[in-house]
Design a protein around this nucleic acid. Sequence first.
DNA 1: GATGAATGAGTGTTCATTCAT
DNA 2: AATGAATGAACACTCATTCAT
Lengths: 198, 198, 198, 198
Amino acid sequence: MKDGTGNAKGVARPKRADARRNEKSLLDAAAAVFVTSGVEAPVRDIAARAGVGTGTIYRHFPKRADLILAVYRHQVEACAEAGPELLASSPSPHAALRQWIGLFVDFLVTKHGLAAALQSDSADFETLHASFLDRLLPVCTRLLDAAARAGEIRSDVTAYELLLAVGNLCIGAEHNPRYEARRMVALLIEGMRLPAQG
Amino acid sequence: MKDGTGNAKGVARPKRADARRNEKSLLDAAAAVFVTSGVEAPVRDIAARAGVGTGTIYRHFPKRADLILAVYRHQVEACAEAGPELLASSPSPHAALRQWIGLFVDFLVTKHGLAAALQSDSADFETLHASFLDRLLPVCTRLLDAAARAGEIRSDVTAYELLLAVGNLCIGAEHNPRYEARRMVALLIEGMRLPAQG
Amino acid sequence: MKDGTGNAKGVARPKRADARRNEKSLLDAAAAVFVTSGVEAPVRDIAARAGVGTGTIYRHFPKRADLILAVYRHQVEACAEAGPELLASSPSPHAALRQWIGLFVDFLVTKHGLAAALQSDSADFETLHASFLDRLLPVCTRLLDAAARAGEIRSDVTAYELLLAVGNLCIGAEHNPRYEARRMVALLIEGMRLPAQG
Amino acid sequence: MKDGTGNAKGVARPKRADARRNEKSLLDAAAAVFVTSGVEAPVRDIAARAGVGTGTIYRHFPKRADLILAVYRHQVEACAEAGPELLASSPSPHAALRQWIGLFVDFLVTKHGLAAALQSDSADFETLHASFLDRLLPVCTRLLDAAARAGEIRSDVTAYELLLAVGNLCIGAEHNPRYEARRMVALLIEGMRLPAQG
DNA sequence: GATGAATGAGTGTTCATTCAT
DNA sequence: AATGAATGAACACTCATTCAT
């Protein structure tokens, strides 16, 4: 019955006020450290940055994946929600796909190590991998399907491989001024396009 | 300044036969372990596999990057040499580019962790990154230029970003049957193509 | 000087009803957890089981020994009280001693870790040790004296060493089906016996 | 083919000279620390006392049980070997048993925490428990059998429970001047005696 | 040159205890 | 009074790297 996190409005205990504040600063610190040292940064570093003890991190996020997940949840969510909207408002499904992938790239490119972590085969990161995919895969699939049905892109590319490919293309982009992930991703998307039918 | 091969400047004393033999078995062992545990595998594992002490590895390859470099030198070399050949024998520069990139992918995809290591910003891996690029960049540039001059591909993609992009696309491919790096790379190359001029 | 029960000197303010209720549930929880995880079980576990915060435990029982003491007080008390009764009702002092030791063993054997804790030299457990002894030593002494005076047992065994010996013999018994503490204690008691005088 | 330890005389690599010296000082340090803080003393403490790094301890003794075992191996061995000798030289099997148990007590009583560790149910200590028993059980069994066959003691006490009981009786003896383990053990042994047959 | 023993910093993780709410 | 969040010392263990033999 304990609820570690959510409990939006209901009968939530009042105490959570300071804890929530603390959790927020934890998330901020983690995000900052992740940018600098990657998502595998030592727990101590994150704790130090947040000005808390290491135990506090473990209390809030028992597994590392929990922390990473929490750090990026909002952004993943925003990205996921943008999918249908773009599909509705764009001139073509392919344009929607391109824009949506653009959002995904914007998100990943600033998360040093995230893309790499998503590739880690460590048991600890499988959850992470899965959670990201759970939310994003359906959205991407729908965009892909729409574009394929419209005859704009080939239909043999799965959302899974596309997301992984895009994720990979973002690795290392942040620290490398000579490597522009967005351009590379654009090429990839362009490579999926089918010639307009006469 | 240290050079793992003992090959300083021009006066290199020819390495003793047994030392060379030793180095060879070191390389074989490292290659094998890299496949299993990635290029960041513990030094001890490699030493054990080679049947030598850890100190021996450090003598031959002071920095980890030296070892990785040595392990893959032959293959990088072969890849580099294939560039001009493909350009000469292929029906078009773009085809040559595609095939050459294919060789590069073949190489990377079977090297667990190599692609990831190439992206590491650790000072230790910068050498690695640089060495690979030193040899491959000119080759790739020449292929790119040829294809661009032939009007087959856009001319705003540098060899540097292309190699990085392809390298990135290969990350994690080995252990993931649902992710086919070659397909993704093919899309990228396809995305560079320019419509044939009337 | 601190006394976990809040019962200082003589002016003890009667504890509030709810506090007493709380303390009772604490004791029950602790007893249950002690059985499962030993008397050194994490405070959190006990608190969780009791449905209270850890702070509450510390309020009621500042030191771990206080808690252990409180948990077993009733049983120690019952054991102590049984001494004189047995002496009065048994056919011989030695029989009374044997039975009383039996009660003590029954008590200890089911308290995972208690016997071990009584032996711990940690400052924290000295209190525990002392408290148990305070109550039980006089009782045991009286039984021993009676049996010795009756010529049934040797008179050079002190209650202190007997209690410790019996306590020790109980260590580890609970989890070891091949080790029957009661049998070993019986041998010890038997070993104290003096041959009946012609 | 690697031999981590033994290899007494044969073709042993020469290098082991300093390592052996080091291992000896490790053992001495461990023994000293065990006396002070018990066999569960922090690895760091032992390392510090021996003047080595923690890694050195792990190299020589991967598991804690290995260290404990090594520390006490000689003494266990000596104890085991004394069994048959005592049986041969003592006036009666019971006397031999008594003396042998005396040796066992002498050994245990000075090893703070050993007896307790032998009782630990931690997986890590099972090995320890088993190793001690492996060596001592047969010896004790033989003494017990001889005494039982001679009609001097009851035959329903197993070597296993006797050793455990004696071990338990030794717990805490070193630091407690008021508790004399030897006396208590003597009582136990006495308690096994059978009245001489007419 | 080769060896592998030694080193010790670095890291994850647990848990008793304190204290703001 | 009760709560439980926060703290941080403590500990086991790993592994890159050095260096005596």
